[in-house]
Write a protein that binds this DNA or RNA. Structure first.
Lengths: 201, 201
DNA sequence: CGTGGCATGTAAACGGTTACATGATTTA
DNA sequence: TAAATCATGTAACCGTTTACATGCCACG
């Protein structure tokens, strides 16, 4: 219990919409901060218990619609203060992990076609990503709202679209360079995979 | 032992420079793929043992300079085949974790100055990042080489610079928007932090 | 009524970092 | 010789995912 950001995401979600259940929080995370954060039930439920034990959140009745027997929670004063305290702390750079770049870096160990295929796949994923982000943006513009959170949400959105667009531009150029490389070096480095590649680490 | 990419990074590093020790591999990772991947000794040394037991790498004498008693390894045929097999597999998107964006998303729970400070800090880190990447680029151009890995390495480098530049541009615009927001809403949402914020989750 | 999805939970496994221990080698 | 650094290793801890168990509710 030291560097546990799960707790803060939960607090943050409850600060936006008071009284949510664990299931609900997970859904909300997926559909909002899902582009840059994720949490699993295995983290959420135990953390909810812990937060409640510490008095940072409190169980609240699902008065609105008692459809399912589910436990909802809402932020306490202490919880809100705790969230604000964390927000003011400097953010940390999470350890970098990008398997795409890793494979591209080792690309010369395989045929150029392998790297080309990876980049094509990246382009595909990024086009989908961009479409989702632009849809969100259009949605926000179509339903103008005074939601005070919105300026902040739009900022995260605009960074996402900027980075995705940038990656797409890079992808086109990278594809050109790699196809040129492929043409220039017919019998390139490693011809193909030997038939005896059974072992996995 | 299922989705353990540590093994593949080691194989990849050994494919670039044969015969390296654990310590050496770690250093090489830091100074090359360090911008998008990291490994700790606690992962590297046990993995080296496992790879050797599987015959994917083999101990080799530090014939070059027997300065220190350190165990060097080099790729076997099987190891090379295993690396190539992995390279051809589709890459996976690692779970997104960006604490900066998370804090920005919840920014309205704090004073705008908090988010402004975070963005300023991000700009600072990105400027340093860009300087490092441009230095690498200049280095590559100053010492032209026929290293066959270089085209791939430069591709990872150019994506890094493109994304960083994009983030820097976004940062400037975000700072403008937030300062405007700050001015427009004098007594904004949450005034400040209550003095009773002792509890940490 | 029964099937399928909703909702909560938990145990186990895993990947990864941290901290520490230890010896060997260089350098001052 | 002493101190600093190189180099290897390991145990403990932590965060996280996965898989599974379970009961409730809606719907056909």
């Amino acid at each position: 219990m030291e560097h546990n950001r799960t707790a803060y995401v939960i607090l943050g979600m409850l600060s936006i919409e008071p009284s949510k259940s664990g299931y609900n929080i997970r859904k909300a995370i997926e559909s909002s901060v899902g582009y840059f954060w994720s949490e699993s039930y295995g983290q959420i439920y135990p953390t909810l218990k812990r937060l409640a034990a510490k008095g940072l959140i409190a169980p609240s009745q699902s008065n609105s619609a008692p459809k399912q027997r589910r436990q909802e929670y809402s932020l306490t004063e202490a919880g809100h203060a705790c969230l604000q305290e964390w927000l003011a702390l400097p953010f940390q750079n999470d350890p970098p992990r990008n398997e795409f770049l890793l494979k591209l870096f080792f690309g010369r160990e395989a045929a150029p076609s392998v790297s080309i295929a990876h980049i094509r796949e990246l382009q595909k994923r990024n086009r989908h990503m961009l479409a989702s982000l632009e849809e969100l943006d259009a949605l926000a513009h179509a339903h103008p709202s005074q939601n005070p959170h919105l300026p902040y949400w739009m900022l995260t959105l605009s960074l996402g679209t900027a980075l995705t667009r940038s990656a797409l531009v890079w992808g086109e150029s990278a594809l050109e360079q790699l196809t040129a490389l492929d043409a220039a070096a017919p019998a390139n480095p490693q011809p193909a995979e030997s038939s005896a590649a059974q072992e996995k680490p």
